[in-house]
Design a protein around this nucleic acid. Structure first.
Lengths: 206, 206
DNA sequence: AGGATTTTTTACCAAATGGTACAAAAAGAT
DNA sequence: ATCTTTTTGTACCATTTGGTAAAAAATCCT
């Protein structure tokens, strides 16, 4: 099934990079959702033909699940880094929301968050999609909670809520930025919401 | 096209109630989204056969748009009433979030908000869906803003933000409750988020 | 009663869908 | 050089999809 002990793989070599293809698949699903994206859309987006796609990954469904997983892992890592690198919680939230808005507004087309924009319709009937959606939500909550706890330990700001509660409000803002972007909201409105939320969650000391 | 001046309609009478059917259509789309719901699903859900559906409404697309519209109008009206009837902003937010959670968790299946759970995947390619999504978001924002402005005029609570900003945070919580419900979050977690948000937006005076 | 009008019922259609069989091609193994 | 093994390319298939044609049924109008 997998390659042998020898480092060289036998047979005709692959003509594509698996990660890159998965990225292109993700972009396709991002635009049209799972049901709204056909295999033909995927072959167009990747340049691969159907048997190559099916050979490398499984069927359409596992392809979508893999795309969700890759997005979740990459997003969580990037978000964690932004929050940790920031000197203060306020700065961290500002940078993270700014990065999120940049992604959600990619090319001014208002695509929102890949997971929370495309997973929900499938999540009722499809348990594996539902689990991915839940995992994304949980990871975001945990991300914020860790950084807020640190800020509170540093006595950084007067935070009105315990870290776990404040964290859930902070990720709520991400959920909202996503659905608003998808609805065509202008960048300006998204930045305004982000700033308002920061002022509520981690008010500037004055 | 429409009935004549005479109150009586000619021809064979309809065998169904248009509003009720649209409600059943909405429920079907709610479970599976637009692309994930077939015409057969709709005929099963309504008991009507295809030509009756097509005769009464248009094609599948306008059927979906009508369902979105009906949900938006009904939701906005119900939300406005809850907020207006409440004595205080805190009570109003509490009642509204409670009502939202009840709907989003219908039959413990975690279906979320109909609009923000099913419209986003279509919103990039379909401008009319995008407009409906934007309209829903805007109406929710306006709903909260009006009530928050009233509370501030009454000098009711110490609200940290101007009404329009606080309102957008308040509807962000709804967006988040929806996507969390769809991800299978337990009722308890949703109520906890609602309470946390209320304490941030309209803190209890003590 | 008989014609007009609208809805229902049944049956159907062309197109798109997810998925696969099969042979040609490209590499390593012997 | 030949054989294995894996990937690629082409063509294909059964099913599902959204949508409709046509006739039967049920009501109103005269």
């Amino acid at each position: 099934m997998v390659q042998k002990d020898s480092g060289t793989r036998r047979g005709r070599p692959r003509n594509f990079d698996e990660g890159k293809v998965l990225q292109q698949v993700q972009d396709a699903f991002w635009k049209g959702g799972f049901e709204g994206t056909s295999i033909d859309d995927l072959t167009d987006a990747t340049g691969l033909n159907r048997p190559s796609l099916y050979g490398a990954f499984g069927d359409k469904h596992t392809l979508y699940i893999e795309a969700l997983r890759q997005y979740r892992v990459a997003t969580a890592a990037a978000g964690r880094k932004i929050l940790e690198d920031a000197g203060t919680l306020r700065e961290g939230l500002g940078e993270l929301y700014k990065a999120a808005i940049r992604i959600y507004m990619g090319d001014e087309e208002g695509r929102g968050c890949f997971v929370s924009s495309t997973a929900p319709p499938e999540a009722v009937r499809d348990a594996s999609v539902r689990r991915e959606l839940a995992a994304m939500n949980d990871e975001l909550d945990a991300l914020f909670e860790a950084r807020i706890a640190r800020a509170q330990a540093d006595g950084e700001t007067c935070i009105a809520l315990p870290p776990d509660e404040a964290a859930r409000v902070a990720s709520s803002v991400l959920h909202s930025l996503s659905v608003r972007a998808r609805g065509g909201a202008p960048r300006k409105a998204l930045h305004a919401l982000a700033e308002s939320a920061i002022n509520l969650i981690a008010p500037a000391r004055n």
